[in-house]
Design a protein around this nucleic acid. Structure first.
Lengths: 216, 216
DNA sequence: GATCGATCTAAACAGTGTTAAGATAGATAA
DNA sequence: TTATCTATCTTAACACTGTTTAGATCGATC
């Protein structure tokens, strides 16, 4: 306010009510803004400046809290992995029997990816994150662990076999999700398209992990 | 050369021998430059200006041939799909029996991804490509078709079952490749890491597509 | 040999992430 | 209270990016 010539634009310096100026809520505001951008524009649409804009601060402000854009996105990715782990745990808890639990987890994994494509893509965009961040690695492992718990129950064999089966399960649902997001299994926009893709996934999971009595 | 004050930097305006000035080889030079960048820096490291720089032209030159960066990358992706399809065909042709062929294709798919990570990631980065390009869609379908040929031979069932099995196979190897590239199956840098990952893949494929006599 | 169309350059524009230096405000201590 | 300190945020700049417009240049065609 020391400058005499006030700019015409009233956009800048608008301490949003919820953001609070100088009150330590900026981290949360930036994370929320980033998640909103990812939800609206996808992973490629994220920019640090836009996140700062939405939080009502200057482009340089985020650096004091997250170092750089990778730091902020790493925090977003960590929360994404936590949400994914929760969804997987939730899906398994609603079913009885290891095979049913695994099937439900697979569906939940792809459902998460399709409903939060921006966050999901960012979670696996290592080059945009602080790849060696300990908390990120931990969150990722925790999500993978949700698979391993059920797999161990299902396979019951050696540790090596369980590791192989877990890699197989994760690969399948991750690959399906990625290919679906790139439109390789049909259009995504409509609700009908979404349901058709989930039906295809259901068949894929039944094909690869048939009921114990079934054969192929 | 009309300007009197020549810049100190001799970098600009160097019509590379192979690029040829005004001789119609610029498309190829730009594609080659782009592939080199992808090989060196990965998909996130690509910039249109750097590709133009390597081809010895101004930043605006590519637009006359490819419209924009997406156009150039689309051309690169098409060639990538063609190379991938060739690798899959090649792998299958060296084996006898549908299961062996499918296994070899899976290995070849991941091998392609790990040896050309930049190209591979770009091939599946729809938002950086002209997503509705007919030739791109065709090239992608042709690569997927290599899987379907073997799957049809292996499954032998209805068309729907073959479609399901093909989606399953593609998802598995694609997911494995993506997760491996993000370091989820261990470090990638060394030759030892590469071999360990391929061994894991071998086990995964044997687990999901066991020899017809085996059970699990 | 002049015209013409394809090809490329120069220059500018609106963006981007990041950094350095300085202003500001809340907390702490006298 | 007043003064100092520290965290927080802004301003301004820098080197980039992709894209566009207008103009220069070259090879081929009439």
């Amino acid at each position: 306010m020391t400058k005499p010539n006030a700019r015409a634009k009233p956009s800048h310096r608008v301490p949003k009510p919820e953001a609070g100026y100088h009150h330590g809520e900026l981290q949360e505001a930036l994370i929320a803004a980033s998640e909103a951008i990812l939800a609206e524009q996808g992973a490629e649409g994220f920019t640090l400046r836009e996140a700062a804009r939405r939080a009502g601060v200057s482009p340089a402000a985020p650096s004091h809290h997250f170092g750089n854009a990778q730091g902020l996105l790493t925090e977003v990715a960590i929360r994404g992995y936590e949400a994914l782990a929760g969804a997987l745990r939730d899906a398994a808890s609603r079913r009885q029997g290891a095979r049913e639990k695994l099937h439900a987890q697979g569906m939940a994994y792809v459902e998460f990816a399709l409903k939060h494509p921006g966050r999901f893509q960012m979670m696996f965009a290592n080059k945009r994150l602080v790849a060696d961040d300990a908390r990120l690695a931990q969150a990722s492992r925790a999500a993978g662990h949700e698979f391993e718990i059920i797999i161990a129950e299902l396979v019951g064999g050696t540790a090596k076999e369980a590791k192989t089966a877990a890699a197989a399960a994760w690969s399948t649902v991750h690959g399906f999700a990625k290919l679906a997001l790139e439109g390789k299994f049909g259009p995504l926009g409509s609700e009908a398209g979404y349901r058709e893709i989930m039906t295809t996934l259901d068949r894929v999971l039944n094909y690869l992990w048939p009921a114990s009595s079934a054969r192929r």
